[in-house]
Design a protein around this nucleic acid. Sequence first.
RNA 1: CGGAGCGUGGCGCAGUCUGGUAGCGCACUUGGCUGGGGGCCAAGGGGUCGCAGGUUCGAAUCCUGCCGCUCCGACCA
Length: 439
Amino acid sequence: MRLSGYFMPTMKETPAEAEIVSHRLMLRAGMIRQASAGIYSWLPLGFRVLKKIEQIVREEQDRAGAQEVLMPTIQSADLWKESGRYDAYGPEMLRIQDRHGRDMLYGPTNEELITEIFRSAVRSYRDLPRMLYHIQWKFRDEVRPRFGVMRGREFLMKDNYSFDLDYAGAKRSYNKMFVAYLRTFARMGLQAIPMEAETGPIGGDLSHEFIILADTGESEVFCHRDFVEFDVLGAGIDYQSDLEPVVEAWTKLYARTDDKHDPAAFENQVPEDKRVHRRGIEVGHIFYFGTKYSDPLKALVATPEGEAVAVHMGSYGIGVSRLVGAVIEASHDEAGIVWPEPVAPFRVGLINLKTADAACTKACEETYAKLRDAGVEVLYDDRDERPGAKFNDMDLIGLPWQLVIGPRGLAKGVVELKRRRDAEREELSLDSALARLTG
RNA sequence: CGGAGCGUGGCGCAGUCUGGUAGCGCACUUGGCUGGGGGCCAAGGGGUCGCAGGUUCGAAUCCUGCCGCUCCGACCA
């Protein structure tokens, strides 16, 4: 992509409305624009990141054996009256009426709808287990939206629902999602720690929140330091195998958010030098809630004995749009965003230091073509701007690699390759730089 | 929903107390000089001062109501 024609309105100054760093940087980098409180438009750069994150979530859901569907944003209130949550949910739910005066709502979550879909099609234990998920916009009319996309009213969420015959089956599904979540966040360069959690209005009795550590996080967390070094991607995962040992390994150490925190237990179970007390951001939440919805909504299946029983369900959410902000909270510096490669909007930023210089521009154009031909996602700054403006913009948007080509270096036969993460710069020939970026 | 604050050009702000018809920096346009970390000179364009009503000869400024947004708290993916 050529920056000269790319819609990326960066800002030197920070809009007054943004308080936390991810919000500020997303606005300054031209990733989002606020439409109204807690509701955002995604501009090209931000949208690319959102799509990258969404795709990683999708791949790991599929790998764990879940199947993607797409349910609507607007739901009929009838189902919610049936489950009893139409009255229970409160003003967070955006209630609307269609032209016939029928009660509708903009879905804050989808347990009712998925259960309705399931019950209409499944009758026998032979059709179990199933895991169905979708990635869809939700709306929760928060009292106070804040933190940009981290706590918006409208947000993109992956929610998965599992259906099993009994608790043992449901626990197997729960374990699959537990492991899938660890993999999902690890692939984005995030160390997510599963913590015992309150189940909230969704309900249920087995639940973990996945928290990433970040100084600007919204909640206080307490955990064992060993969590920070756990590696989940190293070992291949067979989702057909018994995952209980993996889940146990990840849950036996102390890890709780402040509302579940027990100082005495913390001090008992965790040696002083292993105690971590930091702030964190919730990026995922998994629940087992048994027959809470299948009972009232009569999602029944026949057992091998021919008895009709309510299915055991779980739900598993990941805040996809929240993750964009969360990654930035976990990965930035004074100059701007520092994208982990898997979620970066582009892998390489190519900087033409002097577009007026024919030789320099020729080298840049050729390099741009070669990188694209090699399948590298590259953003080429071909604007007629001062070098300083280009450097600052490139640091701000945080692409992992910057390839800097200028007349001065070309005269010596070198270009500069800069790694955004640690600002390490290296002068090398254009060919070796290309080899590095395409290899 | 309690508490606090803010709405003045695309962004950041001054002007409001003490009423006299709107200003600064950045950005933008044109020309020139420039060119390795947000340059310089010159000339320009752009604002119903959130909305509505009121007071006044005269309102960004005073009064009333409304709307929007932000921050702290309680609450949540």
